[in-house]
Design a protein around this nucleic acid. Structure first.
Lengths: 146, 146
DNA sequence: TTTTGTGCAAAGAGTTTGCAGGTTG
DNA sequence: CAACCTGCAAACTCTTTGCACAAAA
């Protein structure tokens, strides 16, 4: 999506174009993924006066408009990323904390069977799946990265 | 697991048996599932002086010992339940907030394919899957239950 | 110039922690 | 009686909100 595109997208919904909103969108695209705090940091590196609460409000707005989305990796802050980024599922290892991205194709059987059985349309990108990675599956030392 | 069983289980790990711990375990079993706050409420109905922080500490301990587990249904407080309860996956509808429990068997293909492809051992019960239920899949009114 | 957006400060949910005193084994 | 556990209060993380002022259209 070009700059002109999302700017008119915003305006067509009655939202205004502000430097803060441009900075937040830029930061999300620059970082690829990040927590509200990460994003605020990136924004403030360019414009220190931008407030954290503005970042929260702006992320909500950008999400509503469809420019960004977020994923819950665990109990902490969510991760925001550009909405057009190729969809993938996050696997979080509860032992070592590693985050593995697998293509959505790997879980399409799951999506299909839940749709067939329950009519439920799963969004597998919204919440990570937890478990133990190949390296940790055998060992027993938990580190509680949940 | 009988009362004597888990009591010796605790002791064999060097933990002590206290009335608070018995009350918390009882409450989890009685409720079937509940947030730390729910559980504290149930405990305090019987023994008002038990502190919330004790409930948190006790839930951690009971989880470490393997008597309870928890599931993240969304961005709020986690849900604790007895560890021996039959495993199921939670589907949370982002439109109406409904929570649907499906047997783990419905997702065993997923578990198998991730194990084969990545060696990753998924625990599908630890985090809910989000999406839209049969009733809401067509409509567009979000209620943001995340 | 009207409406929307922003910064700031305060409050809110959920959870953790330090510590002094109480309890278990 | 020694190690462990609890209650209490304070602190902490993440997020939301009310309000007066500033900026966009």
């Amino acid at each position: 999506m070009t700059a002109a595109d999302w700017q008119s997208e915003l305006r067509s919904r009655g939202y205004r174009l502000t430097p803060q909103r441009q900075l937040v969108l830029d930061a999300v695209r620059e970082l690829g993924h990040g927590t509200p705090d990460d994003i605020a940091g990136a924004v403030q590196a360019k414009s220190p006066s931008v407030n954290l609460s503005t970042v929260y409000r702006t992320l909500d707005l950008l999400e509503e408009v469809g420019l960004v989305t977020h994923t819950h990796l665990g109990h902490g802050a969510p991760t925001y990323h550009p909405a057009d980024e190729s969809d993938h599922v996050h696997l979080v290892c509860t032992a070592c904390g590693d985050i593995i991205a697998v293509p959505e194709a790997a879980v399409e059987q799951l999506v299909g069977s839940l749709r067939d059985l329950n009519g439920f349309e799963v969004d597998v990108t919204h919440m990570a799946m937890h478990g133990r990675c190949a390296g940790c599956a055998g060992s027993t030392d938990e580190q509680e990265h949940q």
